[in-house]
Computed example of a mutant assay.
Amino acid sequence: MGLYADDTHSDSNSENLISKVVTSSDGNYVYLGNKKFARDDLIQAFGGTLNPGLATPSAHKFANPAPLGLCAFALTTFVLSLINAGAMGVKNDSIVVGLAIFYGGFVQLLAGMWEMALENTFGALALSSYGGFWMSFGAITIPWFNIAASYEDPVELNNGIGFYLIGWSIFTFMLTLCTMKSTLAFFSLFFLLAITFLLLGIGKLGDSHGCTVAGGVLGVIVAFIAWYNAYAGVANRQNAYVRVHAVQLPVLESRN
């Protein structure tokens, strides 16, 4: 097995080969240079670390911030999605504002900045952006910001929120493209989240209660997938009997 400078390599195109990857006889360890890494630690294309590519563990002496960010996202999404789905007859979403500002927003933003310190560009982009999403969502419903109150026409307000949600759907689809070589749980999180944003956006633009409910139901599923990925980043041999194992998506090599 080798590491290549680009994806357009073949067996005969050995000049692009950077170095050979040496593994232990049982395949559980990989040797890169003069360092030994556990194979499971190198497979970072997993929601527990929010790193969609092959990467060695960070040399920085920081804990993994991804589970914190994922849990902040999951809990806030879970509560709002239940309301969007019409669970227990709850229609007022004001209860989400505190979560959106402090947990899904501020705490998730902090996790994103810590991902930046760990040199994880994808994790920093995703967590910081969705932290900003939740804080901006909370601001819409807080009277002090005068956002919702500035619209005299409720249809215009719904259309504006629809544009807002569609924009987040486009952004999430972009992130989804960066997870297509990772794992099933990691890819599913972003793909289904993009569909959730799309359904909620259509629900606002088309005044479709059915789309909003569907987005709420799918959002609950997304929340559990986010918790699943977070658990994968916390559970290990030392602290848990139940651990999560990645299901790798098939990777197709590009050839000229």
Rank of each mutant, 00 (worst) to 15 (best):
Y231W: 15
A240C: 03
W227F: 15
A226D: 10
I225G: 05
S208F: 02
A223Q: 12
V220M: 15
V234N: 01
N236L: 09
A194N: 10
T212K: 08
V217C: 12
W227E: 14
V242E: 08
A232D: 15
Y241T: 15
V242A: 12
Y228T: 08
I195M: 11
V234W: 03
G215C: 06
I221D: 00
F224L: 09
F190V: 05
F197C: 10
L218H: 09
V222I: 03
Y228C: 13
Y241A: 15
F197T: 07
A235V: 13
L218C: 12
R243H: 10
A214T: 11
L189P: 01
A240H: 04
G233V: 08
S208T: 05
T196S: 10
A230R: 05
G210T: 14
L198W: 09
G210D: 15
G216T: 08
F190I: 05
N236P: 11
L205I: 14
Y241S: 15
V213C: 02
A230M: 03
K204M: 12
A223D: 12
T196F: 04
G233A: 10
G219T: 00
L205Y: 09
V242T: 12
G203Q: 03
L189Q: 08
H209S: 11
V220K: 14
L218Q: 11
A240P: 01
A240I: 01
G201T: 01
I202Y: 08
I195L: 14
L218Y: 11
G219W: 00
G203L: 05
V217R: 09
V234G: 01
G203P: 04
G215H: 04
L192D: 02
N236A: 09
F191A: 01
A230L: 07
Y228M: 11
K204V: 06
A194M: 10
L199A: 04
F197L: 05
T212V: 10
F197V: 11
T212C: 04
A235Q: 11
N229F: 02
A235L: 09
A232H: 13
L199S: 01
G219L: 00
V244M: 13
L193P: 00
V234E: 03
L198E: 06
Y231S: 06
L198M: 13
T212R: 06
G215V: 04
S208E: 08
C211T: 05
I202S: 06
N236S: 11
G216M: 04
A230P: 05
L198K: 05
W227S: 14
A232F: 13
L193W: 01
A226F: 12
Y228P: 09
V213L: 05
G215N: 04
A235Y: 13
L200M: 13
I195R: 02
D207Q: 13
G201S: 01
G219M: 00
N239Y: 08
I195C: 10
L199Y: 01
